[in-house]
């Protein structure tokens, strides 16, 4: 293993993936490296399958071809029990937070600890309070998830995600639907948790401005593969029209505004012709 490989926590090579229920190919020949201890932002137009990528890394979906190595283990080939072992080293913050609605905030965060450790309740309480302190919700421990605002729910879910001190944390659209203040809070949390806990963070998002302030590496996915990667500065200075369109948020460009369709003129005239035939 070369030193470059050792610095990558996740190495994806030549990944092909299509959902079993549709012929639509999501990825074709995607290759990607996630450096250890850094924040990697994965960006791309919506509907490109960014969440799918996280599920592939987590082993919830299996690719048709290619390898996904997490810390040297090829995730798609692991048996169920080995996969579960590796999943204890990673965690994922879902877009909705995915807190268990039948448990209080405290029990939600204690849940992974109670499942996977044999710690006593006193120690679990200490850990839970520490994690809640880190996200600023120590006072909200007795609330039920339904009583939390969207931003608070996401922070509580973040506390749960770091409960077992994972090596990797994957954020699925952490900024979506957040007001500017809680967005700022989450940006700050991602950065500070990454630095203080020595995590590797993967942030899937299309909120360009927020993520560029904290990312060490940016990967842009479009058209079933990685189209650009580099540090935020490199991408900002790039003159590739696609990167430019994406980072500056222009409506039309290499990524078209319109969903695939015949031109409007053709469609309207075609319909008129059809009607005149019918008449």
């Amino acid at each position: 293993m070369t030193s470059a490989q050792m610095d990558d926590l996740i190495v994806i090579e030549n990944l092909d993936f299509a959902h079993s229920y549709g012929a639509h190919q999501v990825y074709k020949g995607l290759s990607l490296r996630i450096p250890r201890g850094k924040i990697t932002a994965i960006m791309g137009p919506s509907g490109i399958g960014k969440t799918t990528l996280l599920r592939l890394i987590g082993g919830q979906l299996k690719p048709q071809r290619g390898t996904i190595e997490f810390a040297g283990y090829n995730i798609p080939e692991l048996s169920r029990s080995h996969l579960y072992e590796q999943r204890k080293r990673m965690s994922m913050l879902f877009q909705s937070g995915a807190l268990f609605t039948d448990m209080s905030v405290y029990d939600n965060i204690a849940f992974p600890l109670r499942e996977h450790s044999k710690l006593s309740e006193e120690i679990i309480e200490t850990i839970v309070l520490m994690k809640l302190e880190a996200v600023g919700l120590r006072g909200a421990r007795h609330l039920m998830p339904a009583e939390l605002s969207g931003g608070m729910a996401r922070r509580a879910a973040l506390a749960r995600a770091i409960a077992l001190d994972p090596e990797l944390i994957m954020y699925d659209e952490p900024f979506a639907g957040q007001d500017p203040i809680s967005m700022g809070v989450i940006v700050k949390l991602i950065k500070s948790l990454n630095n203080s806990l020595g995590l590797t963070s993967v942030v899937v998002t299309h909120d360009v401005a927020e993520v560029l302030t904290i990312a060490d590496k940016v990967v842009i996915i479009a058209d079933k593969k990685v189209v650009a990667e580099g540090s935020p500065e490199e991408l900002k200075n790039s003159d590739d029209p696609l990167i430019h369109q994406f980072l500056s948020g222009e409506a039309d460009g290499p990524v078209p505004f319109h969903y695939r369709a015949p031109s409007l003129a053709e469609e309207i005239l075609g319909a008129q012709q059809g009607e005149s035939h019918a008449g």
């Binding site: 599920r55 987590g58 919830q60 999943r87 204890k88 965690s91 995915a98 849940f111 499942e115 996977h116």
Partner: peptide
Amino acid sequence: SSLEMMAV
């Protein structure tokens, strides 16, 4: 999904 990702 989140249960699964927590290895439960």
